[in-house]
Design a protein around this nucleic acid. Structure first.
Lengths: 229, 229
DNA sequence: AAACAACAAATTGTCGACAATATAACTTGA
DNA sequence: TCAAGTTATATTGTCGACAATTTGTTGTTT
């Protein structure tokens, strides 16, 4: 049962790693569930060799935990890990914003202003709030990260951390978040970057992420208490 | 040729990953060199299966880069990557120091003061400067990281980043560094933590790492110009 | 009935062999 | 002599099978 369109890639191992990542982030493989090598190998129609390499990769991404001679399990989302992850994100994206304040070229700044204007228009028309919340939000953050010019930082944030972050956001329908407030904060951050105020950009980015983290925490607690009722 | 004492571990793959990490960090496998799977498998007396899993793990640690159908190469140290890495470290350890300022228990603070006193004594006796520089330095930093209480941060810094950091320090004999100055800075950081001044602790830790980074940069430039002469 | 021991089944870890791809060596033509 | 094309070699990617370990089951004993 090849349940996902197979993205052509150089090697089977990469393909599977990508597909497994998506499957986990989107919840097709539920959190806390065991990864059965024979079962998955049969599902994807491959042997266990490349599958195991993919699982090792996922372990590096922090999406699964492995125990010798026992196997791999999808991570179990919980509030503490979320807070820990977002604290790291705060430090790293704060630094990215600081760097971007000195390295982001003028035209890219204008592009980002245009992006925020588009978000504003979407919100004013009261259409597609969800778009601004999800894709738009990521877009803004990713482009600041890339503007940092720090290759290591870019790789860590976009390739390693963001899988888990997206997982947390997807699994907690954060209806609490106020897109208009987020947009205001984005604008303030961009202003600081445009003015080359690194200190301020870092401070604002940290606050912005910290606030998102607190909202997520509330949502998770609410979900947890609802589940236990 | 089993050239390293084999550390007993649950799985061959883990063993090999550990041994390869050491071999790379200590330069037994030179930077930029190609990783030949058949050759290494023969050297360690294992098959290519677990070896490949180990290599995938090393790729996650950023110690090797892999290209499909071509193979793995040990990373090539260069100034830009070093600066990028230390910038990340600055952000992350700065955050760790901030967190430690509110979470580190009193007795652990005392332990760290005792550690610094020991370093001071070593320096005053003019003996074993090297010890203070290498092992002692890491000790201090690692214990602050652990005191942060942030499991994700601890894992990232100690298991992923520090391999590369140690590699940079080892390959550039940083005789420039002034152990006494470093010790003063350590003391100031610890004072801030003891006083629960998170802002200050973060600021000082950042400066401390930034300074180390600049010294390393000078050492690398000097080494580079000496090599081209 | 509960706890423990012995056994059975299934899963993970490891291996050697084959297929696919890339690199090196060689040949041919201008 | 050099360039391009072709063959040969070596290395990586993948597979199926076996060994080692864990987990689940059954049976026995107190």
């Amino acid at each position: 049962m090849n349940n996902l369109i197979s993205i052509k890639s150089a090697t089977l191992s990469e393909d599977i790693a990508q597909q497994l990542t998506n499957a986990i982030v989107q919840g097709h493989i539920p959190q806390g569930s065991k990864i059965s090598e024979p079962e998955l190998a049969k599902q994807y129609g491959i042997s266990r060799g490349p599958l195991r390499e993919a699982i090792v990769k996922l372990e590096g991404l922090g999406l699964v935990t492995r125990t010798a001679n026992v196997g791999a399990r999808v991570i179990q989302l919980n509030t503490q890990d979320m807070l820990d992850t977002f604290t790291m994100r705060e430090a790293l994206e704060g630094m990215a914003a600081r760097l971007a304040a000195t390295t982001m070229p003028a035209d890219e700044i204008n592009n980002l202003y245009a992006l925020l204007d588009k978000h504003q228009a979407h919100l004013d028309a009261n259409q597609d709030e969800h778009y601004v919340q999800q894709g738009g939000n990521d877009d803004f953050h990713l482009r600041i990260i890339h503007a940092s010019g720090n290759a290591k930082l870019i790789r860590l944030l976009t390739e390693e951390l963001y899988a888990v972050i997206r997982m947390y956001r997807r699994h907690t329908s954060d209806q609490r978040s106020d897109p208009r407030q987020a947009l205001r904060e984005h604008k303030a951050i961009l202003d600081a970057i445009a003015n080359h105020e690194g200190d301020l950009a870092e401070l604002l980015m940290r606050r912005h992420i910290s606030r998102a983290s607190k909202l997520l925490e509330q949502a998770m607690h609410q979900a947890a208490s609802a589940a236990s009722r």
